[in-house]
Design a binder for these strands. Structure first.
Lengths: 219, 219
DNA sequence: ATTTTTTTGTACCATTTCGCATTTAATTCC
DNA sequence: GGAATTAAATGCGAAATGGTACAAAAAAAT
């Protein structure tokens, strides 16, 4: 594989997204939006059911361009999954870090999660990790590693929330932050699955509310 | 489609599995075990990644026989899923009906679930519903119906457990059986996903234990 | 023994799939 | 303007895929 992204050393001054004056024919696509389209497809249909033709059509890139830009199908899948995780993390990290009461933090996290899982014109899209990556995880060690990282990252983020809350007295002394974090993650997982089965948003919200009530009163 | 299973009226006396003296060439396979093999494949690889050749090899039936016995690939997938649900239900129904303390019932249910999810020689197999059926559910209404039925069935079974427990005083009056049932289902879902990522059994058991602790003390 | 019925086994077909080789187009550097 | 560089576009090819037609085989019925 040839080194591609050697950015011209002159342009390294300001982080401005100024045109780097590349040398050959300009690309007819924007890698970021193309990757987004690929992500949508993989998320809806999974790895095996998404063909390169589908990806080509959705991104507007023909197959060789796809190949040149992202590598083979598996690499594209992995990059898509990476992108998904980055987006999801970006959407949640502020809330996890926010200095707000436990209940409010949970409510906001789940609202974001529902937004992610329920969006999509051709039906709710669910969660990439739960829907397709976990399936590939049995046979593909790299994907498995990413899935595991995602799962523990979520557990940890929730764990910090509950630990904070206990320290502030929002939870009883005997509360077990790790166990509650696992339950919070489990609630994420269950709504991802149910969303995929087209359970309507209000029902999912009811499930979330019930879960929050239990978790916030936990002794 | 031609009516196939008209059993000879004479043999209808005893439910004995006596040879029904069918007319033509005898089958070289047993439909039940063949369906079991197909189920294993679909569960491991999903719908799209499982080819008819794979199914043919695993069942020992050649493709035309497969087709004749179970219909096309989608029908075989649905029959496999049906079989999975029947097996899972059979494995749990006694425990759900048992007249035992809440904690014990939960422990037994989760032990069975872990057995189901973690078995399999080529890695843990996870849950058919969570791993592959939920993915197909967006685009296939029949599968979606089955998935929804499975989800609500589990919710209801857990719901009865918690209602019983509250009536017996094992739970505080204020406990919300429906919310707890959703959490119990969520715990099933989260261990199914984690199992697929090869989280070892003892970690899954720890997660289950923490969840049970919270659910059994819920106020 | 012959016919009938049911299943197996072989072979085939049209399509799709992934990947790549080659040519053509657009742009910068000299 | 011409060489160099980068990407797009076309299209090929080998393999795999879902499905089926058709003949051979094995059993019961006559």
């Amino acid at each position: 594989m040839v080194q591609k992204n050697k950015k011209p050393p002159t342009a390294a001054k300001l982080g401005a997204p100024v045109a780097p004056k590349r040398r050959g024919r300009p690309r007819a696509y924007e890698p970021d939006v193309a990757l987004g389209k690929a992500l949508d497809l993989f998320r809806r249909d999974g790895f095996a059911a998404t063909s390169l033709d589908d990806l080509s059509a959705a991104t507007g890139m023909n197959r060789p361009s796809l190949y040149g830009a992202f590598g083979d199908k598996r690499e594209l899948y992995i990059k898509s999954y990476q992108r998904y995780r980055d987006d999801a993390r970006a959407a949640m990290v502020d809330i996890f870090r926010a200095d707000a009461p436990l209940r409010e933090r949970l409510e906001r996290i789940y609202r974001i999660a529902l937004d992610i899982y329920l969006s999509g014109e051709s039906g709710p899209r669910g969660c990439f990790t739960v829907m397709t990556a976990a399936s590939e995880a049995v046979s593909d060690p790299d994907i498995r590693t990413m899935v595991l990282a995602g799962l523990t990252e979520l557990d940890k983020a929730f764990g910090i929330c509950f630990r904070d809350a206990r320290e502030r007295g929002e939870l009883p002394e005997g509360a077990d932050p790790a166990a509650l974090a696992h339950l919070a993650s489990a609630t994420i997982h269950t709504i991802a699955i149910r969303a995929r089965a087209r359970v309507p948003r209000n029902e999912l919200e009811a499930i979330v509310k019930g879960a929050i009530d239990v978790m916030c009163k936990a002794k």
